[in-house]
Amino acid sequence: MRADYADFDFIIQPGWNNSAPEHWQSHWQQLLGARRVDNHEWNTPRLEDWLDGLDRAVEASRRPVVVVAHSLGCVTVAHYARRHPHKLAGALLVAPADVERASAPAALQPFAPLPAEALPFPARIVASDTDPFCRPLRSARIASLWQAPLTWLVDGGHINVASGHHQWEEGLAQLDALLDAVSAGRDGARRQA
């Protein structure tokens, strides 16, 4: 089954310091006609501000919402799911940041602890075995806690511009798989109704 992008509203949830114009999230924003979360402060993030920004973007949507998050944005989505378990249709979570690691910058520590509950919507995690901000064992643990399928990118760094991920067209296969899972879940719910 191939999901139709037109069935969804896409929201780009960047991580700390936002995503630059050459970042794959910026390319995908254009490709998908997505809305980017508008946070007041990208450099000194506040969890409440980021949750409010995501909620404003969700509330402005008309169709089922799929969030495409990166790094600290993934943690934001998990916190958001705790508060609003029924507002998102799905989430693609790329290179989640380990905000609990000993070397986590002070700016990220207010996002700890990481939510430890299963996400209440279909999600997929893409992680790298060489991500300096989330070691492989931690990525696997996060995927287990959030009960989301995990795909590994070999030697992918933080899956950002610094690691050579600009348009990252290969990543769209992960988005397609997520949309198929979201669509299958919606079809199953309709058949049960």
Rank of each mutant, 00 (worst) to 15 (best):
L172N: 05
P110T: 10
L175F: 07
L153D: 07
V65F: 12
D49N: 11
A184T: 14
D49W: 03
E48F: 01
V37S: 10
W152S: 09
P132N: 06
D7I: 04
T130R: 13
D7R: 15
T151N: 07
T44P: 01
E22T: 12
A148R: 00
S103N: 14
G53V: 03
P122N: 10
V58D: 14
D129E: 06
Q30I: 00
P105V: 06
D4K: 05
D131I: 02
P21T: 10
G156I: 02
D9W: 09
E117L: 01
F111N: 06
R82W: 00
L54P: 03
A20L: 06
G90C: 08
A107H: 15
A34Y: 02
G33S: 10
G171K: 07
D131N: 11
W16Y: 13
A181Q: 12
A184G: 07
A57K: 04
D38Q: 12
S163E: 07
I11A: 08
L119C: 00
W152D: 12
L179I: 04
S103D: 15
A6T: 15
M1R: 10
L72R: 14
W24D: 09
I11F: 09
N17K: 12
G188C: 12
A91G: 04
Q30P: 00
L88G: 06
P149M: 01
A102G: 09
S163G: 05
P122W: 03
S128H: 08
A118T: 05
A106C: 13
R35D: 11
Q147K: 03
P64N: 15
W42K: 02
W24L: 06
A112M: 02
A184Q: 15
F121Y: 15
A143R: 01
D98Y: 09
E22V: 05
G164C: 00
D55P: 03
H27G: 06
R135T: 10
A143I: 01
A123E: 01
D4Q: 12
A148W: 00
H86S: 15
P113G: 01
A181E: 13
S61Y: 13
V161K: 10
Y5R: 13
S183Y: 07
R2F: 00
G171R: 03
H40P: 08
V161Y: 02
V37T: 11
C74E: 01
P122A: 15
K87M: 12
W28R: 09
